[in-house]
Design a protein around this nucleic acid. Structure first.
Lengths: 136, 136
DNA sequence: CTTTTACCCTATGGATTTAGTAGGATAATG
DNA sequence: CATTATCCTACTAAATCCATAGGGTAAAAG
């Protein structure tokens, strides 16, 4: 299940991508138009900024803005940042790999086999979908 | 993230599918060979039985056995039973649909659009993968 | 230089889910 | 009737989620 954090994060990014210029948008504006708790959104935008997706400006006329062209932001980046691993099990994760404790032979594991297929497909979708695609 | 419940459930089902005859296999046997906590596995097999996937036999020589041909058991069934919705958000779920509180227009929602694609792909994999496929 | 605006940061807490455990009831076999 | 093995309910420690609280800091306006 997708966390609200990720869901809100994507919505906020789309909101910013739809902005014509790079004019900063205030948290309160996004919060209201997207129906997101302002304080919660604040923490989400903060992590997006800390990870290089967003820039911010303080004081009057301040707010958040995208640092890159929406075309250059694939959903893999966003998902890994907010949601974590894309794979459903750590043993098939590219960026968050972990061995299973219970599983002796990974290659013989049915769950591994199945979830590898799912990951490959999901990954391809996220790779080929950019923020620009979602903003139209 | 896939729950251990689902993971263990799949492993147990594969174990039973690999059994030549329909001879009942005891919980303790599965528990040992698959490295699963016996009591936890007990509750998983119970729900699989209550939902028509497994049959059981009590007393000496008892245990669990598949009720159908592994070829006739698609992973959609198993996933929905143990894990719940296949979709990452309720608003794109076929069997567990729920409207979002924050989202006014579902068709205009970027998250909806993206997750619909993911669901379609994942669903097709689970539909086309049967227990028999995982047991080879 | 003071006030207002708006982001920055940490801590805390309620609700829910997860991954079991405990302990006995029930039914079948020999 | 003793043994075996499933059946069933209840409980719990730990983790995660979704916030909220409360102030701190920087920038701009006047």
């Amino acid at each position: 299940m997708l966390s609200k954090k990720t869901k809100y994060g994507i919505k906020a990014l789309v909101h910013l991508a739809r902005q014509k210029d790079r004019v900063p948008v205030q948290i309160s504006t996004i919060s209201k138009t997207e129906n997101i708790s302002q304080k919660f959104l604040e923490s989400i935008l903060l992590t997006l900024r800390k990870n290089g997706l967003l820039g911010s400006k303080k004081g009057k006329g301040g707010g958040y803005y995208l640092l890159k062209d929406p075309k250059e932001i694939p959903m893999t980046t966003v998902m890994r940042l907010l949601e974590g691993p894309i794979a459903m099990v750590p043993c098939v994760s590219l960026n968050f790999y972990e061995k299973c404790d219970d599983c002796l032979d990974e290659d013989a594991c049915a769950v591994n086999k199945l979830m590898l297929k799912v990951r490959d497909n999901t990954l391809e979708i996220f790779r080929n979908t950019t923020l620009a695609d979602l903003s139209n």
